[in-house]
């Protein structure tokens, strides 16, 4: 049928899954999120492929779906307290501890952090993607960073 869509999925599924994983914090929800987004995007693929950045578009759909799903259910899934990977390296272990705490954040706060520090997007763009004001992006990010006991950096937040 639409082989280019299949090709896109084959080529980018892994990267999109990793993105979904940091957005949702767990494997099952990540797989759900990627598939939901691709299902929707697949229906509109001719329009999507004509955009300058189809993958960026898919990622936007994923971020919005992640947020709207949470809004619909108004509940956060319990996250496992046990790390999924055993680490020997101290550095990795510290990362993992921080990741466990990130997974414990409310979805919107986590989404803001992921878009800002994983996707490296400016606050105005994050606001557009999530459909909230730039002020809300900043306040959500600040709250999340405080919870994670991360020193706020003026430079980063001015982006």
């Amino acid at each position: 049928m639409d082989h280019t869509f299949d090709d896109f999925v084959r080529a980018r599924a892994s990267a999109l899954f990793r993105y979904a994983y940091v957005l949702t914090g767990n494997v099952d929800d990540a797989a759900d999120l990627v598939q939901d987004a691709l299902l929707r995007v697949g229906d509109a693929w001719p329009r999507v492929i004509r955009k300058d950045d189809p993958e960026g578009y898919v990622r936007t759909v994923m971020a919005r779906q992640h947020i709207s799903r949470w809004r619909t259910t108004r509940r956060e899934r319990l996250v496992a307290e046990t790390p999924e990977h055993g680490y020997i390296d101290d550095r990795l272990d510290a990362d993992n501890q921080l990741w466990i705490e990130v997974r414990g954040l409310p979805p919107k706060q986590r989404a803001v952090l992921v878009l800002r520090y994983y996707e490296d997007l400016p606050d105005t763009e994050i606001a557009r993607i999530l459909g909230i004001s730039p002020g809300t992006v900043r306040s959500q990010a600040a709250r999340a960073l405080d919870k994670l006991r991360i020193r706020r950096q003026a430079a980063k937040e001015e982006v």
């Binding site: 892994s14 899954f17 990793r18 994983y21 691709l38 990130v102 520090y117 994983y118 950096q153």
Partner: peptide
């Protein structure tokens, strides 16, 4: 106190070590 760079690294590490997805297509 952690830094923003710690967060960046944690997110990257989590993504890189995420279990490989099953057959998404």
């Amino acid at each position: 106190m952690r830094t923003v760079q710690d967060l960046v690294t944690a997110l990257r590490t989590a993504a890189d070590t995420a279990p490989e997805p099953f057959d998404i297509l």
